[in-house]
Design a protein around this nucleic acid. Structure first.
Lengths: 236, 236
DNA sequence: GCACTCCTGTTATTTTATTGTCAACAATAA
DNA sequence: TTATTGTTGACAATAAAATAACAGGAGTGC
């Protein structure tokens, strides 16, 4: 494993997908697979699969292909999934609770240790065995307990300040669901999940496919049962 | 708006982000902005901003820059956000409920009309005024009501079948949160949100930064308070 | 109104990512 | 054994994306 070379982000983003497919194969008791076969399943070129994997080492064997279980475990190691991670949820709203309730996280080694919120009605409650604390206690908690990842599901107005504090107090990474791009020190890693952005790109594609070249789209719009109404700006 | 030319996916994915920043500027009563200024705010090169925007038309003016409100509204139109969209949620679990409860969707014109689930305890319930129906009724509903987007928050085992049916019945696009890559006809658009994948890439980066070059990572692991425990495969 | 600066739209260049090709070698069959 | 097939890993070729360069129109100050 050549840890000097810088792996391109495009490759890293594909790794979890390989991991998922290999897990599926493992469950189906398939013991070996060639890049060609995997290519057909995943809709990626075989060439790219081989090149992606070779960034981390030669896991395959000529004339044989890849051993599914071995490759699966190697990718698991590469992604760091052979360890436990301590996480906290900041913002105990709907999304925060949904993530806490997602049982598979625990199975994968993502352990949510605490939830922080400012809402008095939530504080003291327990969600799937995880207690909700007042945000006031967060500094104390983070400074005295190892926190690998903070899951941010709070309103954008508070997100920046909270993220900066968490960074200062030693949280390694942030999984950010709030509607704002965080600016934190370079040694704190941020992964943004902008759900609305993702939905918007879907809508763009729908529009492109169903209404493209239609300069005044209102008519076709009505035909499709979509009433036209001006919408104004909203605040998260 | 040159609707012939094919816009690259990279550009489309950036559009919502531009839209977000322009909305912020609008709220701050900033009326004009140059690509250079926006570049500083967004951490993108000015060159890329100009090139991105020019895919859709010349919205700026030499010596002046871009009019914030005008550009905001143009991007709104490009993304198709000047219309209403009818949506349904398939899978009324935690995540599905969280999305229904996300009030901003409605403000943006994303109207969730119905929720479908197989769980008898949920059927008949109302979440933020949206009723939960038995999945049996979905075919009838979709065939008789325009559905632009189906939000899929169901277990992977059911996702593929449901998605194929929805495609057949005329749903235009799917916003897929289930842990599987959907294979649907070409005229049905799918936007996948693989939350776990996104978390895994964050973990990769955390590992790279904190444990890189450390072939036997177990020791440094313990130093950081992360107990090492072998984890096995799980099923969604 | 004129000189000067700003800033776009566009073209050129560089960088990054993907795909295609092939020699080398393993597995399998003859 | 020996031939044949399958398949990797390396690298070359191509494509896509990002960045830089720049000509020239529009604003600004005098």
């Amino acid at each position: 494993m050549d840890s000097d070379r810088k792996i391109s982000p495009a490759v890293i983003n594909r790794l979890p997908r390989y991991y998922r497919y290999l897990g599926d194969l493992l469950e189906s008791d398939i013991t070996r697979i060639s890049s060609k076969e995997l290519s057909a399943k995943m809709n990626i070129t075989a060439s790219q699969i081989r090149q992606d994997l070779n960034n981390f080492g030669g896991f395959g064997q000529q004339g044989y292909g890849y051993n599914v279980e071995y490759l699966y475990n190697e990718i698991k190691k590469i992604l760091g999934l052979d360890r436990l991670y301590n996480m906290i949820v900041v913002g105990g709203g709907n999304l925060g609770q949904a993530l806490v309730n997602y049982t598979n996280f625990e199975k994968r080694g993502f352990v949510i240790k605490a939830i922080f919120d400012t809402n008095p009605r939530l504080i003291g409650m327990t969600i799937r065995g995880v207690e909700v604390y007042d945000t006031d206690q967060m500094e104390n908690y983070v400074k005295n307990n190892p926190v690998d990842v903070a899951i941010l599901t709070l309103p954008r107005s508070q997100a920046v300040k909270v993220a900066n504090n968490l960074a200062k107090w030693g949280v390694k990474g942030m999984w950010n669901f709030s509607h704002v791009d965080l600016q934190v020190p370079d040694d704190v890693l941020v992964e943004n999940v902008h759900l609305t952005d993702s939905l918007m790109t879907l809508l763009y594609k729908i529009n492109e496919m169903y209404y493209s070249g239609d300069e005044d789209m209102h008519e076709s719009n009505l035909k499709n049962g979509l009433p036209v109404k001006p919408l104004d700006q909203d605040e998260e």
